[in-house]
């Protein structure tokens, strides 16, 4: 159906979604679960970026940090403070988990901005697994820590009694919508930005519009740099919020 997105008359070719195709790196066979694909490659790059930043960058253990070490320390302090502030002091034990998610998303988002690259976080399969992971972890932690009284999260005792069942229904629905919005927000943001860049790039095929299109791509690219960071931040901070709900379910 995507072929129908091409506007046949003008000669412009729009393939905004082609950049998201999962292809095997070697050969042309079918994509099995173990196949080494461009997903593998770019995820490996994001692992390398994390290692470069947090392991190689801090290997000198300097008291007065170098540039790369101070960036690594900044990331550590940023996420640590976020966990402490949003989820509470007793959530510090889950800090490595949130740090893992944050660092992976940040690196994958920024690597996705490299031209000709593949954005792993623009795939709903990827973000949905992370969001479901957060959702299941949080629910399990909630029931493990508080047992049955975790359900008081849905029973708002400060509301008037007749309203409570309705509010409980809304709360339950919103609780189960969490992983959906959590995953689609990240994937949608990344997909939208990259698709828009591709659409503007396709307009550059007309010589008159080309300068305007280059300007537009530059502007969108700048916005995307911002969005890349903010979406990783939002993903991490929402994880913290959900964790706080699990650790302190009583409003």
């Amino acid at each position: 159906m995507a072929s129908e997105a091409n506007s046949e008359g003008t000669g412009l070719v729009f393939h905004p979604m082609d950049q998201f195709i999962v292809k095997p790196l070697f050969g042309d066979g079918p994509v099995m679960w173990y196949t080494v694909t461009n997903v593998t490659l770019w995820m490996a790059f994001s692992v390398a970026a994390v290692v470069l930043l947090l392991v190689v960058g801090t290997s000198r253990r300097a008291i007065v940090p170098s540039r790369s070490q101070s960036i690594g320390e900044l990331a550590y302090g940023f996420v640590y403070k976020m966990v402490e502030d949003v989820a509470g002091k007793d959530a510090v034990g889950y800090f490595p988990y949130i740090m893992t998610l944050f660092m992976f998303i940040v690196c994958a988002n920024f690597l996705g901005l490299v031209p000709m690259s593949f954005t792993t976080t623009s795939h709903i399969a990827v973000t949905a697994v992370m969001a479901m992971g957060v959702f299941l972890t949080v629910t399990v932690i909630g029931f493990f820590k508080h047992g049955f009284s975790f359900l008081s999260l849905f029973w708002i005792s400060s509301a008037p009694l007749p309203l409570r069942p309705i509010l409980a229904l809304i709360e339950i629905i919103s609780y189960f919508v969490r992983p959906v919005s959590h995953s689609i927000r990240l994937a949608g943001n990344m997909m939208a930005g990259h698709a828009v860049i591709k659409v503007f790039a396709a307009f550059a095929g007309i010589a008159v519009i080309a300068p305007l299109s280059v300007l537009a791509i530059t502007a969108i690219y700048a916005l995307e740099i911002l969005v890349s960071f903010i979406q990783a931040y939002v993903f991490a901070i929402l994880t913290c919020v959900y964790l706080k709900d699990a650790l302190h379910p009583h409003h």
Binding site: V22, M32, V39, M43, T120, H123, I124, A125, V129
Partner: peptide, 21 residues
């Protein structure tokens, strides 16, 4: 051109999930 949205191509889901994990 590829068919539809690559994001909804379920045949690649297993691969992505495996490598993500």
């Amino acid at each position: 051109a590829s068919p539809g949205m690559p994001q909804l191509d379920f045949s690649s889901f297993g691969n992505q999930i495996f490598w993500l994990v």
